[in-house]
Amino acid sequence: MSIPVTAYLLLGSNLGDRTALLRTARAHLAAVAGEIMAASALYETAAWGREDQPAFLNQALAVRTFLTAEELLGQCLATEQAAGRERLERWGSRTLDVDILLYGPALIDQPSLTVPHPRLAERRFALVPLAEIGPEVRHPRLGLSVTELLARCPDPLPVRPWLGN
């Protein structure tokens, strides 16, 4: 039997019924990836990378999983596909995005998967919800806590608590 790992995921949506898509994604991931130990509030953020699109709702999850990082990635991609995700352009609008931010203390550099997420320290929209559920979690490559990363984050885009439904 393998040892469980706490993985941190980021959900994002800027098309369709964003709250419903995130709710469905959480349920799907709980069924296929492992126990959701913590979920941040929802945050609305301006689009990063391509700013000429609707705002995103984002949420971080801490998942206790027995899946390998590659298996977890497969489940993240399946969750996106079930939500109707189409990959038409980099950083484009999407019904659902599920990223692996951290997978325990692992450092993974493969063609299909890089963990920690390579742009985590540059993205306020990922760090704010992650800091809510894991402020002292350390970035295994940089050696800094999520709180420290957030304090140093160069991203100027606002991240606001979602007050919608």
Rank of each mutant, 00 (worst) to 15 (best):
R64Y: 00
E86R: 14
E80N: 04
A47E: 02
P54R: 01
L29Q: 06
L21T: 15
T19H: 10
L10V: 09
L15Y: 00
R85A: 11
L73A: 05
A82T: 10
E44G: 04
R23I: 05
N58W: 02
S13I: 14
F66N: 07
A69Y: 02
R64G: 01
Y8K: 01
R18F: 10
E71M: 09
W48G: 00
E80V: 08
F56S: 00
E89A: 08
A69G: 06
F56C: 00
L88W: 07
G12Y: 03
R94A: 10
S13A: 15
Q59A: 11
L67S: 00
V63Y: 00
S13H: 07
E86T: 13
E86L: 14
A83F: 08
S40F: 10
L15M: 15
W91I: 02
Q81F: 09
G16M: 06
G12L: 01
R87D: 09
A39I: 11
A39P: 12
A20E: 14
L15R: 12
R50M: 13
D52V: 06
A27W: 02
A83H: 06
V63I: 15
T6W: 00
T45V: 01
A47Y: 00
A27E: 15
L21I: 13
E70I: 08
R18A: 12
Q81T: 14
L11P: 05
F56H: 01
L57H: 05
E70P: 01
S93G: 07
A25M: 09
T79C: 15
G34Q: 05
F56D: 04
E80P: 02
G34R: 11
A46V: 13
L61K: 05
R26I: 07
N14V: 04
A55M: 13
A27Y: 00
Y43Q: 03
A78R: 15
R94M: 11
A7W: 00
L15W: 00
V32H: 11
G84L: 15
L42W: 04
P54T: 08
L10F: 00
T79V: 10
T68C: 03
A30N: 08
T79I: 13
T95R: 09
F56T: 04
A38N: 11
A38M: 10
G49Y: 11
G74D: 14
L67Q: 03
A55N: 15
Q59Y: 09
A30D: 14
R18N: 07
S40V: 07
G49D: 13
A20C: 07
E89P: 00
G16W: 08
H28S: 12
A38W: 07
M37R: 14
A82D: 14
R87S: 12
S40I: 10
G74R: 12
G74V: 13
A25K: 08
L67M: 05
D52T: 13
A46K: 11
C76N: 05
R94T: 04
L9V: 11
R18Q: 15
E86M: 12
N58M: 03
S13E: 11
G34L: 09
S40E: 09
R90M: 12
F66T: 09
C76L: 07
E71G: 11
G34F: 11
R26V: 09
G92T: 02
L42N: 03
A20L: 13
Q53T: 01
T6R: 07
A62V: 14
L42G: 02
A62Q: 05
F56L: 03
Q81G: 04
L42I: 03
R18I: 15
A27M: 09
L67N: 03
S13W: 04
L67A: 06
L42R: 07
Q59C: 14
R94H: 04
Q75V: 14
G34T: 04
